[in-house]
Design a protein around this nucleic acid. Structure first.
Length: 549
DNA sequence: TCATCCCGCGCC
DNA sequence: AAAAGGCGCGGGATGA
């Protein structure tokens, strides 16, 4: 027995069915009906057998279990795995890929809220979890790279468990520190209106422009105001303001920075998102096409550096913060098998490795050149460096170039483990067809080329960003398993693309740091086997987030 | 009044 | 339009 399918009984509300299955989906014994109120206890009991729980949607099933103190080790999230399999190049011949859009293609279903009028919203509508599981097992079994897909599906599902656990545990957040930071930067919290320091800056801006009643928060008004004062600007963006030689420059830049802080992470944000010393963002695993996570509410993936001091370990605890150094270039080196680039990555700082190899003069050039290759820079300083990069790292550059060419043709591309890009929409394809048709106008041809290049930059980046996301998922999944072996329940509290944070009792912080490093090595092995590429980490054991880096 | 668009900027 | 990929969010402007 290794799979344990959990699904709602369609004929009996409030009853859940459990069915044991082999890895191949063969039923083992009959199904068991469990009343909803007994589910927590039954899951706790059955978890002892270390099954892989198969359910429609982790974001719906797991939070109530966590709230009752029950954790599970492994799961298979049918909704997330469906999204991957349906598009994957490795499973294109499966019945699942050929099926029309159905209930499994919908967005996640939030967990029922206690006392909500809508707590009978039900599972993914009329979806049959048993059938779907069989379709998925079939798709994997018949895939070109079943091993890679299995790893991806397991990593994605574990990510969903982690997302729910991190929201449940919350990120330790000191409202006292946060309030002190805001007070220092903005002035004391006002009962209404702007904080004092912000208001003072607004006055300075209006003075400098000679317009006492200007509304700085209205972009059109501000643009008009700047022009009326003789500033030659096209927008009110930071970059353009920085170019000005006018007394309004300094106060306006300061105003914009602080106004931004107030609106996105000020006192109102704190009241909404921090409770009982914990920030609990709503993570959305697989929320980005490339496989990166998104968040919904709280803006957890954009915590500005200026307030990170508010993230504070509990007394007697530490934060173990680690990020993968230059993850995307390293992933590119591993995927492409580019030995020269891997050699540069032998350096703890890959960009410095590029400099040491004599490819470019400065670290900054190395960084821009590399990002230009991965993002598809076509003009400017970074594009100028491309020929040198191509000469030094031909296989790596060829891989991203192939990704770009595929996108320009309207073809799909895939990550290392098989997450596959969407096709461009119908309008895009029509434009491409129209431009290549007999007698196409020059404007149409030019527009189609431009859109083709735009999509090519997306597919170019998809391959690398998506594979980096896979590495990060494997890293985190491996870390989660290792943390269970450390005393005192150290646990993940934050994940940001290539960075993790663990809240750990101080006396095990060093053991956690070791686990973080071992997990990174394991992630590299899981994806790439015996690769020469190192996945270097920056790691710090700190009391507050601002002390990392 | 509400939903949606656009701008601008925070993060990787 | 900052030289380039992926996002979320808040705020005003806009239009039904």
């Amino acid at each position: 027995m290794s799979l344990l399918l959990l699904l709602d009984d369609p004929s009996r509300a409030g009853v859940v069915e459990l069915q044991s299955l082999t890895d191949q989906g063969e039923p083992v014994g009959g199904s068991v009906a469990v009343a909803a109120e007994d589910l927590v206890d039954v899951v706790r009991e059955r978890e002892a057998g270390r099954p892989r729980w198969v359910w429609d949607d982790t974001s719906r099933r797991y939070p109530p279990l966590l709230a009752a103190g029950v954790r599970v080790e492994r799961c298979h999230d049918l909704r997330l795995c469906h999204a991957i399999l349906r598009r994957s190049v490795y499973a294109q011949s499966s019945t699942l890929a050929a099926a029309p859009t159905g209930p499994w293609d919908g967005p996640r279903v939030p967990p029922p809220v206690e006392g909500s009028l809508f707590d009978d919203a039900g599972p993914v509508e009329t979806a049959d979890s048993r059938e779907e599981l069989l379709r998925q097992l079939d798709a994997v079994a018949g895939a070109d790279e079943p091993g890679r897909l299995r790893l991806l599906l397991a990593a994605e599902s574990t990510g969903a468990l982690i997302a729910a656990e991190m929201q449940h545990d919350g990120m330790p957040w000191s409202v006292e520190s946060h309030d002190a930071l805001l007070t220092e930067m903005l002035g004391p919290r006002p009962r209404s209106g702007r904080p004092a320091k912000l208001e003072a800056l607004a006055d300075q801006v209006r003075d400098a422009l000679g317009q006492p009643s200007l509304n700085l928060d209205s972009q059109p008004d501000l643009l008009r105001g700047l022009r009326a004062a003789g500033c030659d600007v096209e927008s009110t963006g930071k970059w353009e303001i920085e170019q000005l030689d006018h007394p309004v420059k300094e106060p306006l830049l300061a105003y914009k920075k602080l106004a931004r802080l107030l609106s996105s992470n000020g006192w109102a944000w704190m009241d909404t998102w921090v409770h009982d010393g914990r920030f609990r963002p709503d993570y959305v695993p697989g929320g980005v096409v490339t496989g990166r996570w998104a968040t919904s509410g709280g803006g957890a993936l954009q915590l500005p550096a200026s307030i990170r001091a508010a993230v504070r370990a509990d007394p007697g605890w530490k934060l173990v913060v680690a990020d993968a150094a230059q993850l995307e270039p390293r992933v590119l080196a591993a995927m492409s098998g580019d030995g020269a680039m891997a050699a540069a990555g032998r350096h703890a700082d890959l960009y410095q490795g590029v400099v040491d190899a004599g490819i470019v003069e400065t670290r900054s050039e190395a960084k821009y050149a590399m990002l230009g290759a991965i993002y598809g820079a076509t003009t400017g300083p970074s594009a100028v460096l491309m020929p040198r990069l191509t000469k030094a790292y031909p296989r790596a550059v060829a891989l991203v170039e192939a990704g770009a060419r595929a996108g320009e043709r309207g073809d799909i591309v895939s990550t290392w483990l098989g997450r596959t890009s969407p096709r461009p929409d119908a309008a895009w394809q029509a434009e491409l067809a129209a431009a290549s048709a007999e007698g196409a106008g020059a404007d149409d041809v030019r527009a189609a080329r431009r859109r083709g290049r735009d999509w090519g930059r997306f597919t170019r980046n998809f391959v690398v960003q998506g594979t980096a996301a896979e590495w990060a998922l494997c890293w985190m999944a491996s870390l989660r398993r290792r943390l269970l072996l450390v005393d005192g329940r150290p646990h993940l509290v934050f994940f940001l693309h290539d960075e993790v944070m663990v809240h750990a009792p101080a006396d095990v912080a060093d053991a956690v740091a070791v686990a973080v490093r071992e997990a990174a090595v394991e992630a590299g092995r899981l994806l790439f086997g015996d690769t020469p590429v190192d996945f270097a980490l920056n790691l710090a054991v700190v009391d507050s987030y601002d002390q990392a880096k």
